[in-house]
Every structure is written in C-alpha cells, then in structure tokens.
Amino acid sequence: MASDPILHIKDSYYFEVPSWLAPSHRESLQDFPDVWIRLDPAYQLWEANLVHAKLSELSKGVPSETDFIHNWEHWQHEPGNHGKPVRRYLKELAEEKTKDDKPANPWAESWPEAQELVTVAEYRETAQPWSPKKIEGYNEVLSGKILIPQPFGQLRNLYQKDSGFCISRFMVLETLVAIVMVLVFTWYASRLKKSIVPKGRVTHLLDAFVCYLREQVIRPGIGHGADKFVPVLLTMFFFVLGCNLLGMIPWLGAPTASFSVTLSLAFATLVIGMGAGALKFGPVGVWLNLIPHMDLPLIIGIPIKIMLFVIELAGLFIKHAVLGVRLLANMVAGHLVLLGIVALGVEMSGWNLILTLPIIVGSAVLFSCLELFVAFLQAYIFTFLSSLFIGASTHHH
C-alpha cells in the first residue's frame, strides 16, 4: 500500500484521483487488468496447482499437491510473505542450500520453466466467473486509480514491478517536466536570438533566473572554467524545481520525494565532477587531487597521505549521498507536516471540528506557502552545492 493516499509520497504505477473522477465499473473477470487478476487469491491458487503439475512433469521429488499447497499457504502466513504468489515461494526454495552447499530442493530449480507455461489469458478462458460481491469490492478499491499502461514489463502489484521495464508515476511526471523544459527553453532561446534585450514578462522572468544562477551561483562556486558547466547545472536547477513544484499539485506528487530520483541526480553531479577532473588531471590525477598539498618528509608524508586519501574518498561519496538525501528529506518533511496538520481534523466532529477547522485550514495554507518556498530553495541549494562539488573536483586543492 502507499505510505499515504493523500500526499502521494511513495511512487506507484498508477495515478490516484477522487473516485468520482475515475470510477471503476468493471462488470466481469474479463474487464480487470492482468496485474489485479494476479493478485486475486483464486487466481494464485489456480496458478499454484498448475505450476505444481508442471513441476511434477519436469522434476522428481516434488511433494504431493496437498503438501505443496499446504506448505505454500503456510509460507504466506509468515511475516512479509502475505499475498505473495507461488513463484516467489519456489524462488526462495530454489535458493535454499544444505550444509554441504548443495540445493536443498533441487526440484524447485525448474520453477521458471513451469511458471512460463502459466498465463493470465489462460485463466480468463478457463476460470469460473467472479461473484458480483467480489467484483463490487474490487471496483470500490480500483475507483480513482488510473493505471499506467505497461507495454515493456509486468507488474507484481500496483507498487512493485515483477519483470521488464515498468513505467511508474514519477517517471511520467519527470518526462513531463523534461518536455516542458525543452519547449520553454527552446522558445526562450528563439526570443533571445531575435533581440539582445529580453522582451516580455516570461522572458524577463527566465532571464532573471538564468543570469542570477550563472553569475551568483555557478561561476563563484566552480571558479575558472565554470561556463562549460552552466548548461548542465541550469538544467539540474529547473528540473529539480519542476519536480518539486509538481508536489504542490493535487494527486500528482513530487518525484524528488523518491530516493531513486534524488540519488540519481547526486550521482550525476559526482560523475560530471570526477569526469571533468579526469579530463583535466588525468584518470589517476583526479583521485590524487583529493589529497591536499603538504610538504612533509617522505617517511611521515606517505602514511599521512594514505590516511587522508581514504578519508577524502569516503567524504567524496558521503557528501554526494547527503546531497541526494538532503533534497529528499526536505521535500518529504513538508508533506509529512502538512499531513499531520490535516489529520488533526480526521477524528474530530461536532463543535470540536467547527472550532478547530479555521486553525487547521489556516495552518495548511501557511505550510503550503512554506512548501512553495522550499521547492525553490532546495533547487537553489542543490545547484549551489553541485557547483561547489564540481569546482572541488576540477581545481587543485
């Protein structure tokens, strides 16, 4: 399940909106998406029986059908295994080893071949129709959920992929931000080509951002040779800003509230900095540049410089990891505070709710304004720190 259905902090493979905007009116088993059918207990039992039959044909030593199903269902009741299909159970069995480091269940190693023979399409053709009560319950759960098509992969559930390349909600939003950036800055560049002096409110706004970041952030942060990094750092700023601002729009969420996004951006900063340093100092020199210059006797200098290199190397990776965590923590923290304020009114009723409602609404508005400020501030801080890190990698200490 999502960490919270209101603020969409966790990534998913669907967009969630109010149920009245996207009601689910599916009438039969045939109308439900494959991922939902695979989560149905009746399908999973059918799948387990079929996989057992295929395993019995492929291998020897397979337990009886009754024991196989019983053991799988018992495994499902263990912590962390609730609702997991039989293929997850068999994969775990196949990985078990004896004391002699031999397969504990050699028959289970054939599970991928047996699993490939099981398809949702076959279940749709052979299964008994679902009861109206089950369909009604599933429609209630799926109402308000707009599932993202997955042409290149298969989902395990609405929050985890099973195989292939699956498209998540944050991927769609990041692509949207990238497309908007291409369109806006292509237009911005065309306006500047027509006139040396920017004209128009939007052009002036963009020009103010670009000039300030270039003159007050990137050039001072990197120093000599900073201009070649201006395009990539401007791209980072506006991409982070766009992702942050999406968190202010209902039912979308901020992609920068995901570790995968923020750590990828921090990794990009690391690669750019060390790559530029390698071009300037050489593939070995860029690492030796981590050690500050010291005039020490050889017998003392070698051990001290080795220790400093280890410390600086650890610091290099830690500070870039913190760069990503800082961005994520600030974006998630605002959402959690806002959620806590809104949640104050959930359990209230009557006069208590009437008296506290203005306070809750007012606080939510103020914190939303604060989040808007934080969205710009964190984009600025990320760009500023990235400039400093790149500058440290491309200049002698």
Score class of each variant (00 low, 15 high):
Leu206His: 03
Leu377His: 14
Gly301Asn: 13
Leu55Asp: 05
Ala121Asn: 06
Arg326Lys: 13
Glu116Ile: 03
Val35Asp: 01
Tyr89Lys: 05
His25Tyr: 09
Ala278Tyr: 07
Phe229Trp: 04
Met248Phe: 11
Leu313Asp: 09
Ile304Trp: 00
Glu78Ser: 01
Val337Asn: 08
Ala108His: 09
Leu241Glu: 08
Gly144Ala: 00
Thr186Gln: 07
Lys102Thr: 11
Lys102Met: 08
Lys199Thr: 11
Ala104Ser: 03
Pro198Asp: 07
Ala321Arg: 15
Pro103Val: 06
Ile291Glu: 00
Val35Ile: 06
Asp4Thr: 05
Ala333Pro: 11
Thr235Met: 06
Tyr138Pro: 03
Gly242Glu: 09
Leu372Pro: 07
Leu313Asn: 07
Tyr188Cys: 06
Ser64Asp: 14
Ala266Thr: 10
Val261Ile: 04
His70Gln: 12
Gly144Pro: 05
Thr119Gln: 15
Asn139Lys: 00
Ala22His: 11
Leu385Met: 12
Val337Ala: 10
Asn352Leu: 10
Ala268Ser: 13
Gly137His: 11
Ile9Met: 02
Ala321Phe: 15
Leu298His: 12
Ile300Pro: 01
Leu45Trp: 06
Tyr188Val: 04
Gly285Ile: 04
Gly275Val: 08
Gly334Arg: 07
Lys228Gln: 13
His82Phe: 13
Ile299Gln: 11
Ala254Asn: 07
Phe15Glu: 01
Gly285Ala: 01
Ile291Trp: 03
Pro303Thr: 07
Val197Asn: 04
Ala392Lys: 14
Gly221Leu: 05
Asn352Val: 06
Gln154Glu: 13
Arg201Asp: 09
Met1Phe: 13
Ser12Gln: 02
Val35Arg: 01
Leu147Ile: 11
Arg219His: 11
Gly137Arg: 14
Pro112Ser: 00
Gly137Cys: 05
Leu45Phe: 07
Thr262Gly: 00
Ala257Phe: 00
Gly137Ser: 10
Thr394Trp: 02
Trp46Leu: 04
Leu158Phe: 07
Ala42Lys: 10
Leu328Ala: 10
Trp187Asn: 08
Leu279Asp: 10
Leu323Ala: 07
Phe229Pro: 01
Leu370His: 05
Glu57Val: 12
Val210Asp: 11
Gly315Ile: 11
Ile272Lys: 00
Ser56Ile: 07
Ala254Ser: 15
Val361Asn: 05
His77Asp: 14
Pro250Trp: 02
Ser163Leu: 11
Ile302Arg: 09
Leu90Cys: 00
Gly362Thr: 02
Val261Tyr: 02
Gly315Val: 12
Tyr138Val: 14
Val337Arg: 12
Glu125Arg: 15
Thr98Lys: 01
Leu357Asp: 02
Val210Gln: 09
